[in-house]
Structures are given as structure tokens and as C-alpha cells.
Nucleic acid binder design. Structure first.
Lengths: 337, 337
DNA sequence: TTCTTTGATGTAATCCTTTTCATAAATCAT
DNA sequence: ATGATTTATGAAAAGGATTACATCAAAGAA
């Protein structure tokens, strides 16, 4: 509507009979102003309903008090739970959280780089796949761009500070769990080809298979894309095999859930006929039928940790990257052969 | 790190041998500047790597080119899918999307009101429950605060412009579906007491029951809170009843999923032993076992519509509130008695 | 008493754009 | 060729805060 001009610091100053400098001081460093004056000013602030103009402040201070979080898909549970952790930490530090959803589209990604360059944010948290030609973090750092911390999808180009888990190790643990239950023929449903996590989890799968002395078979490595539909497709592929595996390791929970429902509909029972294990431990993994055995990633903590690292960088420190622990969560979807 | 001073418009102007006014014009209204000059300026922009300072722009233009979206819980799938719709529309309009997660906590909510007052956003989209004493929209409007559109949780205090579905009607449709299948004893698992949606859906349930000439029974209205655990608790309550209902209507899908898995573990089969119907049609509703019959809310469209309405208000128009259509999605969790 | 220090406040520069208004040059009509 | 338009550019005034520096009064030291 009518942008009905909001009160400025001048009006407060006039009403309180002081200079604008004093008003500013009352708001930011109240201790250095005389108690009597302060009360008068604060009274004037209340009376006028004054709130400071964020743009003016940020122009003068040369910082925005905001962080940009770049997400490839905000509708995805996995990411949104990380956001919770970031938000908590950011708002505790007085920072606004800006969210950019790229939908994995290049032009949108570019738009968010511009945000950073425009000074709209003091730093960025990246949940996006750096593989996706986002931008070259080392180069940007050299340009004097605000600092960036990469979360979860961490590869060689992710820049100096990252937060992740040991995906290769976790995948190894998952597959080893299946092997410990006597499974000898184990398939893997991978993530999207271009994603750095895919390679890491495939590597863990292969190592576990190799260490157990099983024969690695390429036909047991199914393609996927982290979506429900890929899980369903994996079931079709599974059923088409003449020599079916007795267990599958999925690169994420969502695909495992897609498999689960399709298998059920087709009369294949989990874990009686086939064991499955997921990755991530998303919220709904506990309420699958049967509940999903999976690798838990500490999502909220990953977000919070990354935010803390970013704050440290902004403060001029040079923190090291962090590896967070993961857990194997054993539920009902895996059983001995 | 070192905030290595970024190039300003002055440097571009100097390099191109023009005034800063011309540089600004080249960036915003290229047509009114001579082609020759324009090329020279644009060249200088590229050469310096100039990007405009968002704070300065926003100070001068008296608008922030950002929208604030207030969410009660960002980890919740239901909300995050609405965000997708908002984001698409916002970025198309050149607006930044700021997300505020209140965690349903008053101090955090207050903080976001302040954002608006600080001019950090040109308008707000509210997914929060206005019941939660957020703030009084009519009052704030009188204060000349940026415009606000409320989505989904719409009640009498939601202000002049809202986007929602007919919750009472949808609940009525859901329950009627059960009745049409011959169910005569139907329970309802409600949402959190304070939530406006709870009342609306309960009302639809009661009306359907009454219209079918069934006896309304208070013990068939179970309390809930939209969480998985509430669904599990509902199962316990269900099983404790001497005269068990043959069907349940859940105020949302998540609770239905909680019920489903607990029922399965206890040997109660859906829909053989009991039919259930959810609400929302969240992503995973299709991959439950059995797939969940539910009411589909057009989440992405709700977000997009709300964003469009907000843009209209900002542009000075006075659009009316919107009611979007819902669908009954029949899947495998409901069957004749 | 006089000089120093401390404490409280004010003055004014600065942050970087956008935009109004004025000016100068170029085009056109007559 | 002269005056009337039109077009392209520049000068300068906002826009609303923060903060280095200056000032002034009061308090303390000698």
C-alpha cells in the first residue's frame, strides 16, 4: 500500500532533544550514554515506534547480517532438516537466513552468486552439488567474495571449509552389516551420476564387497536419482534378474521407500524375501513398513556446525573442515538370509 | 576475511569516462543511453567486475526486493513444498525469498515482525498459525507495515488476503468417502488444539457424520498434533476401545503414517481390518504400504498463488482472497467394510 | 586554584545508488 | 538560418544510519 513514511532516527532525536548520534548509541551501546538521556531517548523510540532501516545500516556497516543458504531442492526432507540446524544457529547470532532454491538449474544458481556479489549476504552455506558447475569456489574466494561453507555434498572443488560425514566409510558399514547377516549377493542402487556423493557411496559399497571376498558384479549396481520413482524402477530391475540378490543397499532412504512399496504391491516381502538398507535416516524412515534400517546423518547438527564455521570465518578465523559421525540404525528391513 | 573493497559505480564511471548517472542508466534503462556510450560503460562494468550494492540500492529505492516467508517448522514436508511454489514465483519477479522458521516460538516470531518493520522485506507470506499470538494483522496494517498474505492456516484474524482450501468441505468429503464404503463407526484423529485447521476439519467430520445419520460420539474424536507419534498414540487408543471403529479420518498424512506402521507391527491390517484416510497428500503418501487415500492440497500452487497476490498488493491493487480446489485421492488404505 | 582526565554529547563525513532537474548538443521544421 | 524539439549526459540532492573526531562540562589531582 502507501509506504506511509516510517519514523527515522532524526525524528526520534528531535523528540528526545538529542543528536542522532546519541540515539544510535542508545540502541547499540547503551552503557556509554547517561542513564537520564537514555531513558528519554528510549521513551522517544517507543513513542514514535521507530525501528532502524536495515538498508541504511547495512550500507554504512558494509555488511548485511544475512547468510545465504543455497539448496538444490527445498522440498526435499533431507535438506529441509539441515535448514533447521542452520536457522537456529543463525538467528542466535543475529543473522537473517536467506534461502535460495536452485532447483538444480544453472540460471538460478548464477542468480545466487550475484546475491553474494551484491553484498546481500555476509557468507553462504552450500547444500548444492558443486559438481553442477555452480562456480569455482577457489576462484571466487580470490575475488574477495564472502566466505562459503559447503555441507554434505563435499568433493575436491568444495573449497577450504566443509562439513560432511565419511560417506565412503558409512556405505562400507551399511554393506558390511548386510554381509554380517550372511548376504552374499548384494546390489546397490546409486544416486545421480553427476553427484559427488554417488561416487563416494559406490566406492564404499565396492570396498565392502571386495573385502568380503565376494565377486563384484556390474549388473548389481543399479542407476538411481534419489527419488521415489528410482526406487520403484530398481524393483523392476531387481525382479528381472535371473539370479536375484538377497539384499540391496540404497544410496538414500527415499529410493528405499520407493522400492519397499513396489515390492509389497508385488508380493515380495521385506525382509523375508529381500533385505534392504537405506541412507540418511529421514523422518519417515522410522514409519516405513517395515521400519527402515539405514545410516543416520546428523542433519540438524551438520547445519548448525556449518553455520558456526561460517561465523568463525566471518570473524576472521580459519577453522578446519569438520567430519561428523554417522550411525548405523538397525530396524526391521534387514534380516539374516 | 578482508572485505577487499568491491568496485563501486564511481570506478566504472571513471573508467568509462562518464558520470555515475549514466552508468546507473546503462544498468537499468539501457535504451535511453547512446549505443556508443552504452558499450563503453558495459565494457567498463565487465572489466571492473562491478556489481551494484544491494543495500545502497534498497536505501535509495525504499524497497528491499525481498519477501519474508514465515514458517512454523521448516523441516515439515508440508511447508517445504509450499516454499517451492513461492520461490518460483518470487524469483521470477526478481524478489529474494527470506525464510523465517519460528519453531512456533514467540520470541522468534517477534524477531520476524521486526524484519518487516526494518524494511528488510517488501511483504510477507505467513504459513504460521495466526492463533499462536503472532501478531494482529489488522493492527499492523494500520501501522503501515508491508503487506501480508496468509496461507493455509486461515482464520478470522488472518487479515484481508489469504490463500486456502475449504478445510471443512474437504474433511466432509473425506469422511463421506468412508461412509460411502459402508463404514458406520468412524473415528477422527485431530490436529493440535490451538490450530485453526483442527477446528475446521473436526467440523467437517462432524457434519458428515451427522448428515449420514450416525451417532456422534466424543470418544471417537482422538487428540493429535500432526506428528508421527500422535498417529502411534491414536493406534493405542483405537485398540483400547471395546467397540472399535472400522475407519479413521486423520487430520494429516503424517499421523496416518504413524498409525499405519504401528498397526502393521501389531498385526492389524489396513484396509482389511480398518480403513484410514489422511489429509494433505504429502510426497510419501503414495509410497506407504498400502498407499494412503487422502485429500490432496495443491501445495506448490498455494505458494505460487499467495506470492502472486502479494505482488499485486505491492503493486497497489487490492486482490481478493483465493480458495483453491482440493482433491480426494483414492488409494489403497480405504476399502468397503 | 589550575591543570588533567574522564565522561557525555554533538558535528559532520561516509557508505553507494537512484533520480530530478538542468544543460548541452543534435535534429527538425519553417 | 533561426527557433523549437528532442536526445544524451552531467551535477547534485536525497535516502537513513554509523562512527571518527571535536567539544564541552564535570570531576579529580596537584
Amino acid at each position: 500500500m502507501t509506504p506511509m513514511t516510517r519514523p527515522t532516527i532524526d525524528e526520534v532525536a528531535r523528540l528526545a532533544g538529542v543528536s542522532i548520534a546519541t540515539v544510535s548509541r542508545c540502541l547499540h551501546t547503551p552503557d556509554i550514554v547517561a542513564a537520564k538521556t537514555r531513558d528519554r531517548v528510549l521513551g522517544a523510540v517507543r513513542q514514535t515506534g521507530y525501528t532502524l532501516n536495515a538498508a541504511a545500516q547495512s550500507l554504512r556497516q558494509r555488511r548485511s547480517n544475512a547468510v545465504l543458504v543455497v539448496v538444490p531442492d527445498i522440498g526435499n526432507t533431507f535438506f529441509s532438516e539441515i535448514l533447521g540446524g542452520i536457522e537456529a544457529e543463525a538467528s542466535a547470532a543475529g543473522l537473517t537466513m536467506l534461502i535460495g532454491d536452485t532447483g538444480r538449474m544453472k540460471p538460478r544458481e548464477d542468480a545466487y552468486v550475484r546475491y553474494l556479489l551484491n553484498g546481500r549476504a555476509d557468507g553462504a552455506l552450500l547444500l548444492a552439488d558443486p559438481q553442477a558447475a555452480w562456480f569455482d569456489i577457489p576462484t571466487l574466494n580470490a575475488l574477495g567474495i564472502p566466505p562459503i561453507v559447503t555441507i554434505s555434498e563435499v568433493g575436491p572443488d568444495s573449497g577450504p571449509v566443509t562439513v560432511s560425514i565419511d560417506n565412503e566409510g558409512a556405505a562400507h558399514v551399511a554393506v558390511s552389516h548386510l554381509i554380517a547377516q550372511g548376504h552374499r549377493r548384494i546390489a546397490h542402487v546409486a544416486g545421480p551420476e553427476s553427484n559427488i556423493l554417488t561416487a563416494q557411496r559406490v566406492a564404499g559399497y565396492r570396498r565392502a564387497v571386495a573385502e568380503a571376498g565376494l565377486t563384484p558384479e556390474r549388473e548389481l549396481e543399479f542407476p538411481g536419482d534419489f527419488g521415489l520413482a528410482a526406487g520403484r524402477a530398481a524393483f523392476d530391475r531387481f525382479r528381472a534378474l535371473s539370479d536375484r540378490p538377497s539384499a540391496l543397499f540404497f544410496a538414500n532412504d527415499e529410493m528405499a521407500m520407493g522400492f519397499l512399496s513396489t515390492a509389497y504391491a508385488a508380493g515380495v516381502r521385506v525382509p523375508r524375501d529381500v533385505s534392504i538398507i537405506g541412507f540418511d535416516d529421514i523422518h519417515f524412515a522410522q514409519s516405513c513398513i517395515p521400519a527402515l534400517t539405514t545410516i543416520r546423518q546428523p542433519r540438524a547438527e551438520m547445519g548448525a556446525t556449518a553455520m558456526r564455521l561460517l561465523l568463525q570465518i566471518i570473524a576472521g578465523e580459519a577453522p578446519a573442515s569438520v567430519r561428523l559421525p554417522y550411525d548405523l540404525v538397525i530396524r526391521g528391513s534387514t534380516a539374516p538370509v
